[in-house]
């Protein structure tokens, strides 16, 4: 897949300083992030999820009562850069650790940050039991269908056909088994009140996912039980593709199987057909908006 490069016109503008007479509407990084610098690969999707859940916490006014529990993966490097009290857990164990934190600090907003290898491979039992207990915490899954940190190995969410270092010809159901659709599974659990699967492969998806985070944290603040936000994230390194191809690859492979949308709201499960219809409508809207923007550029 090759991405067609836009061809902007006109001179290169000075973007080293704030433009005079303009008002700032979005900051370079969230207030709850100590630094934007990190050692993630170019084109990685994980920092995008980081930005929006930190912004969501801040915007909901929950910043001074939030405690995070991080698993082990590439995103572990954010443990030191999030300006949020944090417990560094072991691979797979974050939901149990979060349970202990929440039970001793019921007034706190407690979230976990885990990848698919951490949550769906190593710690499947912990996430499912935590959901079933209706533990009033928010678990965040950064799902890229691959062990990024070890260098691109198959996880329990790797989709059929996906090439990894231990599924060289692509994941083959007969040999490697089928991927787990963890969000769909959790949506079926009674203790789960809010379950959503977002993505960060384009700006619209990022904005939608940020709303999902807000709903999840709100549901925790209202003591509604377990909430879960899965975010499909780009891992061009572990997918062995050019960085710029990440968003399209995500859309065409991961998102085909791990269908985006709100899987459960207020205890009501939404089925895959509903989500697919919704996603198609959103994609059409985005294309129309882009065409409007292009036309508007010269329509002074």
């Amino acid at each position: 897949m090759t991405v067609t490069q836009p061809q902007p016109v006109g001179p290169v503008l000075d973007t080293s300083v704030a433009p005079p007479g303009a008002k700032k509407i979005a900051d370079i990084k969230p207030d709850l992030l100590l630094t934007g610098e990190h050692h993630m690969c170019p084109g990685c999707g994980e920092p995008l999820a980081l930005r929006i859940y930190l912004e969501a916490i801040q915007e909901l006014g929950l910043a001074q009562r939030t405690i995070g529990v991080a698993g082990i993966g590439c995103y572990t490097s954010f443990s030191g850069t999030m300006d949020v009290d944090l417990v560094q857990a072991l691979h797979g164990r974050a939901p149990s650790v979060a349970t202990g934190v929440k039970r001793m600090k019921p007034e706190a907003i407690v979230f976990t940050l885990q990848g698919d290898g951490d949550m769906v491979n190593e710690g499947l039992q912990e996430i499912l039991h935590t959901a079933a207990r209706g533990e009033n915490v928010t678990c965040i899954l950064l799902n890229n269908g691959v062990f990024g940190e070890t260098g691109g190995h198959m996880t329990a969410t790797t989709v059929i056909g996906q090439r990894t270092k231990n599924s060289l010809e692509g994941r083959d159901a007969e040999y490697h088994g089928y991927p787990m659709l963890i969000g769909d599974l959790i949506a079926q659990i009674q203790g789960a009140s809010y379950v959503a699967r977002g993505s960060v492969h384009n700006a619209g998806a990022v904005a939608r996912t940020k709303r999902m985070f807000k709903r999840a944290f709100e549901s925790q603040a209202n003591n509604e039980g377990f909430s879960f936000v899965e975010v499909l994230t780009m891992c061009p390194t572990g997918w062995f593709i050019p960085t710029g191809d990440g968003p399209d690859y995500l859309q065409d492979t991961l998102a085909e199987i791990h269908v985006m949308g709100e899987l459960k709201v207020d205890g009501v499960v939404h089925n895959t057909e509903q989500l697919v219809a919704e996603n198609t409508r959103k994609a059409e809207e985005a294309a129309a908006a882009k065409a409007r923007d292009l036309a508007d550029k010269t329509g002074a």
């Binding site: 001179p11 503008l13 509407i25 995008l48 700006a203 550029k297």
Partner: peptide, 25 residues
């Protein structure tokens, strides 16, 4: 680098993994 025609929509900020952008209107 930026050329004329920015709408201040924040899409670049939302999709940038490396916290490079600030957006103005």
């Amino acid at each position: 680098q930026l050329h004329p025609g920015c709408t201040g929509c924040s899409a670049c900020l939302f999709i940038c993994p490396d916290f490079v952008f600030e957006i103005f209107k």
